[in-house]
């Protein structure tokens, strides 16, 4: 509590300084806006493949005793996975390049910004980008008729939270990377998560291994987006949100501290 009181008055300044990193990214992407636009095609292709392929093949499935369209079951999980992938990419490769090769943070730390503000600013940018992609994803879901509830709008903030958790943790992990070859480990973590987070079939299918699935942060992200998409409110949501908020907080704390030790030696 004491620490919180000390931090509070400084918060507006911190937020403003962090937002400078977002401003820089906007400056960079102003010229390369096509990169951002290209991100809109990813959800479209994903969803089309489900709609055309699986949807027709599988039809309806039973989840927790109720019958739903398979495409409606999978689409939210894909949206959550896309949020994860975008955040991980932004916070690992991009951050590593700026940290080790462009020496960007070295430059910025000669100004009044602190390492934590830099970390927060970069994550804020990852979230801004994630927000745009999530909106695009949502538009595609609705356009392809894969949504049945108006609550699906809440899938967007849910994806921002997923992005926050993964971007913070991704950045924390990146501060430990020694070279580009270390990035080979990232798909080794994200691919199993993508496949085994109750993304393509309900958690009940895992039988006695359900507890292992629940370790995966993407499981909580997908469950959250799915709950929004199906308009399915339950106490489980609190658990999912808590898991992701804690992950974001821990990631941010580690990233800020590690950037400090790396750049302030």
């Amino acid at each position: 509590m004491n620490a919180l009181v000390r931090v509070m008055p400084a918060l507006p300044g911190t937020l403003r300084r962090s937002s400078r990193m977002v401003e820089r990214s906007v400056m960079v992407y102003r010229r390369t806006w096509m990169i951002i636009v290209s991100g809109f095609f990813e959800p479209l292709f994903y969803l089309l493949s489900i709609r055309i392929g699986f949807g027709a093949l599988i039809g309806e499935v039973t989840v927790d005793g109720s019958l739903i369209d398979y495409a409606e079951f999978v689409a939210p999980a894909l949206m959550a996975s896309a949020a994860m992938n975008g955040a991980v990419y932004d916070s690992t490769m991009n951050i590593f390049y700026k940290l080790k090769h462009a020496k960007l943070y070295e430059t910025v730390l000669a100004t009044p910004l602190s390492p934590t503000e830099v970390a927060a600013g970069e994550i804020l940018w990852a979230l801004t980008r994630g927000l745009l992609y999530s909106i695009a994803f949502l538009i595609c879901i609705v356009a392809l008729g894969m949504a049945s509830s108006g609550w699906i709008l809440l899938a967007v903030p849910a994806c921002v939270l997923i992005g926050f958790a993964f971007a913070a943790m991704g950045m924390a992990v990146t501060t430990y990377m020694r070279g580009w070859s270390d990035f080979e480990f990232i798909p080794a973590a994200t691919l199993p998560m993508f496949l085994f987070s109750a993304t393509f079939y309900p958690i009940s299918s895992y039988g006695g291994w359900a507890w292992a699935v629940q370790i995966s942060p993407l499981y909580h992200g997908a469950a959250l987006v799915r709950a929004a998409a199906l308009g399915d409110a339950s106490w489980g949501i609190v658990g999912h949100v808590t898991y992701l908020v804690v992950m974001a907080g821990v990631g941010l704390a580690i990233a800020g501290r590690r950037l400090g030790t790396l750049l302030r030696a």
Binding site: M27, E106, T107
Partner: peptide, 24 residues
């Protein structure tokens, strides 16, 4: 600094503008 750490992703003028922004 000893080695130039200019922002390679920005133009000459943008390098100065964003740096000023870091100083509010």
């Amino acid at each position: 600094p000893q080695t130039d750490n200019l922002d390679q992703e920005l133009t000459v003028e943008e390098n100065l503008v964003i740096y000023g922004r870091y100083f509010d």
